[in-house]
Simulated assay, not measured.
Amino acid sequence: MERIILASKSPRRKQLLEWAEIPFDVMVKDTDEMYPASLPIDQVPVYIARNKALAVKEELSHDRLILAADTVVVLNGKVIGKPVNKENAIAILTELSGQVHEVITGVVLMRDDAEIAFADITEVEFHKLSPQQIEFYVNKYKPYDKAGAYAIQEWIGVVGIKRVKGDFYNVMGLPVSRVMKAILEFEN
């Protein structure tokens, strides 16, 4: 398999690609994560991922396969981003407590003028979390770089998640099996 370019600084995405034994190099260019308000919610992370891939593509001097991804959490039709501070993280987790929400990861693979883009959706249900549990998690794990203010592979996922319907790894930030199929499509 050819080495791809991962257009993400996410340690979780790097780890997932390593687990899948997909060879890659990381190349990141800061991009704006704003999106048009009229965009359907399931297309928001695809739009952001595409912008990440395009920014990296502009920097490349030769043709390489680029993988970019973005993850959002959606509760009751509203996109919940990354928390801006401790109070915001606590408020987000309080809102998610006892609720079912969706985690949507948008993926874009791009080389030359060819592109494969998709969104993968996983449903996650939290147990009712106490204020003490939420505060403990936020204080210890500081989830400020995580959509929805949590990481499923950390303490809160182990004790706080009641049910996952869909790809577990999608909640970590990358639906790896689907990505692998898309990479193989580019290689054929």
Rank of each mutant, 00 (worst) to 15 (best):
K162C: 04
A68M: 07
V79A: 07
P175E: 01
Y141P: 02
A53Y: 04
E95L: 08
L54Q: 10
S10T: 02
M34V: 11
A119N: 04
L65K: 06
E185F: 00
P83Q: 12
Y150A: 11
N139L: 02
P143C: 11
V107E: 01
V124A: 06
W155N: 06
E95C: 02
E115K: 10
I4Y: 08
P36R: 04
Q43I: 01
A114Y: 14
I22P: 04
D120C: 06
V159P: 07
L109I: 02
F126G: 00
I80E: 00
D32P: 03
V164R: 03
I5F: 03
V159H: 14
I152R: 05
Y35W: 11
L67G: 00
D32R: 07
K82G: 14
L184T: 03
E185V: 01
V103H: 09
K128E: 15
A37S: 15
V56H: 08
R50I: 11
E87G: 11
G173W: 14
N170H: 05
I134W: 04
S38P: 05
L129C: 03
I41R: 08
L17H: 04
R178P: 00
R64K: 15
I22L: 04
K142V: 13
I48N: 02
A91C: 03
G106S: 04
F186R: 01
K140S: 12
A147H: 09
E95N: 11
Q133F: 10
Y141E: 12
K57D: 11
L184I: 07
I104Y: 03
I4T: 08
P23Q: 13
S130A: 12
E115F: 01
A7H: 10
V176Q: 11
A53V: 08
E18T: 15
D32T: 05
L67S: 01
K9E: 13
S10P: 01
D145P: 09
E154G: 12
A151C: 14
V179E: 05
M1N: 11
A49Q: 09
S130C: 12
L93C: 08
K128H: 14
Y141L: 12
R64S: 11
L54S: 01
V79N: 10
Q132W: 12
L16N: 04
E18D: 12
A55S: 10
R64F: 11
V108R: 06
Q132M: 13
I183L: 14
G81K: 02
N51V: 09
P45H: 12
M172H: 06
V26S: 06
V84W: 01
F136P: 00
N88G: 05
L129I: 02
L93V: 04
Y150S: 07
P45R: 09
L17R: 03
V108M: 05
G166N: 06
Y169N: 14
S8W: 10
L184C: 01
E115T: 15
L60A: 12
D63C: 13
A20Y: 01
K162T: 03
M27K: 14
V171K: 05
T105R: 09
T105C: 10
K146I: 00
A68T: 08
I80L: 15
A7N: 05
E135W: 01
R12L: 09
A20V: 07
Q133P: 02
D42R: 14
R178T: 00
P11W: 11
T31I: 13
E58D: 15
A20K: 11
D42W: 10
A149F: 10
I134A: 07
P36T: 08
A7S: 10
R64P: 02
D120K: 10
A89T: 09
E187R: 06
